[in-house]
Computed example of a mutant assay.
Amino acid sequence: MAPGGIKRISTLFRSKSHSKDPSSSKKSKHLQALPDEPEPPTPTTPTTATSTVNATSRRRGGRGGTRDTYEDLLGPVSPPARSSPTQFLEEFDQPITDRVVVVTGASRGIGLEFVRQLSQDPRTLIIAVIRNPETASKLVQLTSTQVVAVHADVTDEASLKAAASDVARISKGKVDLLINCAAINTDAKRPLAEWDAEGLNAHLATNVTGAVSTINAFLPLLRKGKEKRVINLTSGMSSLAYNDPHLGLDISPSFAAYTISKCCLNLATRKYAVEQGKEGFCFVALSAGWVRTDMGGPDAPLSPQEAVAQLIKVIDGLKLEDNGKFLHIDGEEIEF
Score class of each variant (00 low, 15 high):
P43L: 09
R270D: 00
G236R: 15
H328L: 04
D68I: 02
T48K: 12
I251M: 05
L112D: 02
Q32P: 00
V115L: 06
F281E: 07
T56P: 00
K161R: 15
P220F: 14
I179N: 08
V284K: 12
A182Y: 05
R190T: 15
E333T: 09
W290A: 03
K27A: 13
Q141L: 08
H246V: 10
T52C: 02
R223Y: 09
A182C: 06
A81V: 06
E113F: 10
S51I: 02
F281S: 01
E332Y: 01
L74R: 13
V115S: 08
A285I: 07
D322K: 13
T44F: 04
L178H: 05
S17V: 12
V147H: 13
S213Y: 08
P220D: 08
V314R: 11
I312H: 07
A300R: 12
A49P: 09
E134I: 05
S137T: 09
A307D: 02
G248N: 08
I127R: 03
G61F: 06
G62E: 11
C181I: 07
L286F: 14
S51Y: 03
S254R: 13
S24M: 14
G105A: 02
V100D: 01
A81F: 15
S235E: 01
E157N: 14
D153W: 11
L192V: 13
A49G: 11
P253G: 07
I231E: 05
E227V: 02
A202N: 09
A33L: 07
A2E: 14
A205N: 14
M295G: 03
D196S: 07
L31R: 12
T234W: 07
Q94R: 14
P245W: 10
A285L: 05
H203T: 03
T206R: 01
A300T: 08
K27Y: 03
L219T: 02
L139D: 06
V103R: 11
S51N: 01
D21Q: 11
V314H: 09
A193P: 00
S287T: 06
N201S: 10
G248M: 09
T104N: 09
S23P: 00
L318C: 07
S25I: 08
R108D: 07
K16R: 14
Y258E: 06
I231L: 04
M237G: 04
H328I: 00
L265P: 00
P122H: 06
A168M: 08
V101N: 03
P301K: 04
E335K: 11
G277M: 03
S17D: 14
E279V: 00
L233E: 02
T48R: 10
A162G: 04
S239T: 05
A217F: 06
E194R: 14
T50A: 13
G296P: 05
I260N: 03
S165K: 15
P122K: 10
R58M: 10
G75C: 13
L112R: 04
S23G: 00
S19T: 15
Q276A: 10
R59A: 12
E39F: 10
C282W: 11
V175L: 12
D187L: 11
I130W: 06
L265A: 01
R229H: 14
T50M: 04
T56Q: 10
